[in-house]
Amino acid sequence: MTHRDTTDSVRARLLQAALDCFLADDYHQVSTRRIAEQANANVAMIRYYFGNKEGLYEEMIRDTLAPLLSVLDGPMLNSVTGFTEFLQLYYQTMAEHPAFPKLILKVLALNQGPGRRFIQQLLERGRTQGAHKLAALKASGHLSADLDPDIVRMSFVSLAMTPMLLKTIFEHQMERTMDADFLQQLAAFNGHLLAAGLSGAGKTMAGAA
């Protein structure tokens, strides 16, 4: 194993340990020593890779959201049908870390933890990139030119976040588990729902006018 492989492994272990710890307890209840011990690493490695606890916390959030944010720079959302694929990726990512959506909500709504500005920056990046994707779909004639990007974003976020935020409640009510197969079907349905809404939005808005 090379030195690079070793350092990458330590960094990855620290990120995973931070994710586990911060999802289990509030930010101020988690110490760097606890994270280092869980990662089987020296606490000095946190300073080396991330500067401090806050730097590790922010990098943990960035690392968890990376698969979703990278999509905004790729071709997945170049067509309306790509929304289904993105929802599948979102559900899969959040299912692997079921407490993560609640952590984001706590930071944004309750200001718990230091990452509010950082998360808002990530969300703003998503908003900006999403608006660019929507503009390209409008320019190609796939969507109505009158479509409001904030309405689309609000609808998409609702379809993505709500099932994962309320997953435990939904499972109890349905008396069934929202497993991988269920989430894949949900992504397909919600993707179709969103695509149908987008394709008919121009007609609906014209009729309302």
Rank of each mutant, 00 (worst) to 15 (best):
I46W: 00
S155N: 07
N40H: 09
D20H: 10
L19W: 06
K203W: 00
T81W: 03
A180M: 00
A24V: 01
D20L: 04
C21M: 12
L194I: 14
F189L: 08
A18T: 02
A109Q: 08
G197E: 00
A145G: 14
A187E: 07
T128F: 03
Q92N: 09
T84D: 15
I35E: 02
N78I: 01
E96H: 01
D179W: 04
G191D: 01
R116N: 06
L194W: 08
G130D: 07
P75F: 10
H97I: 08
G191S: 02
L110M: 13
F189E: 04
L143A: 08
C21G: 09
L77I: 11
A12P: 07
F22Y: 13
N78W: 00
Q129V: 12
A195V: 06
K133H: 07
M174Q: 01
F189G: 12
D73A: 11
M178F: 11
G113D: 00
L77M: 10
V152F: 04
T81G: 12
G200V: 08
E59V: 09
E124S: 10
Y91T: 00
A195K: 04
R127N: 07
Y27I: 05
P149V: 11
L110T: 01
H142Y: 12
L165G: 04
F170P: 06
T81E: 15
D25N: 15
Y57W: 11
P101F: 04
A39S: 05
L77T: 11
T32N: 14
V71T: 09
R33F: 02
D146G: 08
E59Y: 05
A206M: 13
H97C: 07
L193S: 01
M178P: 05
A95Q: 09
S31P: 01
M76P: 07
L193P: 00
L14H: 06
A139R: 07
T7C: 09
L89C: 04
F100V: 07
A131M: 15
A95V: 05
E175N: 10
R4I: 15
R127V: 01
D5G: 01
P67L: 10
Q129M: 12
F189M: 14
A135F: 06
G207D: 02
G113A: 02
M94T: 02
Q88K: 15
L77Y: 01
E96K: 08
Q92K: 06
I151P: 03
R34Q: 08
I35G: 02
L166E: 06
M164D: 00
